[in-house]
Amino acid sequence: MFAFLVKRLAATVPVLLIVAVLVFLLLRLTPGDPAAIIAGDAASPENVAKIRENLGLSKPLIAQFGIWFGNVLAGDLGESYFFKVKVAELIMQRIEPTLALSICTIVIAVLVAVPLGVLAAWKQGGWLDRMLMGFSVMGFSIPVFVLAYILIWIVSLKLGWLPVQGYERIAGGFGPFIRHLILPSITLSVIYIALIARVTRASVQDVLSEDYIRTARAKGLPENRVLIAHALANAAVPIITVIGIGVALLIGGVVVTESVYGIPGLGRLTVDAVLARDFPTIQGVILFFSFVYVLINLLVDLSYLAFDPRIRY
């Protein structure tokens, strides 16, 4: 168990290192002067010169990476020329809405998708199964922003039930906080539900054809116990895995959803930074999102230990 932990953690380090290299190279392999790009379009020549010195641009590429990576490890992601603050600080300021939106979305998605997937697998080929498969292919196909506008148009504009856009900090009261979060979370959860439900259905279906399910039925167990204690327990690993992998989809969705609903989170920050060509911020946000993504999938891997006794490295 300890060996598994150490091994898994050790395997994460090279991945993060490669991510850092890729993010670093992103800027260096771009035509043009990195210092000028980082300083922004309206920078003075002195400013550009100063940045050039800080980046060590006269040194070889590997040394430049060393300087940059040393700074990143020290928590210094550089300074945003557009927002005029440290990128790390900027990320911390914008993290709350994104976190709230993501957690809300994951909770909705898991609560809806897993039971639906299990039931669809149980009655394979039945009406629920067909509806779910239809829903899921539509969920994969409808663009997040189109869905967002449909929901806004119906729920907010026609029915007037919920605010059109914006965000309220949780410190400002739970009611307004949650009211502003409902629509974005539903919007974002649709593709996630499609994904999780599909994988749940498929893996439970797979498990249901296993011999030990036949054993469970031969014991005279009722179907609900067969489904939950035997089928779902064995299908847990692929389901949790896809929840982890789906975080990449979630992050993509956050960028769009925050932009449509005007939520001042990290996704919105990403778009603003790109539009302003604010490269330190772009780099910082990508690094941060990737780090979170790798971390979540590390936790997912570690959780296998709890779900499958066969995993002992």
Binding site: E210, D211, Y212, R214, T215, A216, A218, A229, H230, A233, N234, A236, F307, D308, P309, R310
Partner: peptide, 16 residues
């Protein structure tokens, strides 16, 4: 009535 099966490797629930 009870039944035992061909594949002891797969006839038992692996996570229980």
């Amino acid at each position: 009535m009870s039944m035992i099966f061909q594949e002891p490797m797969t006839a038992l629930n692996p996570v229980m």
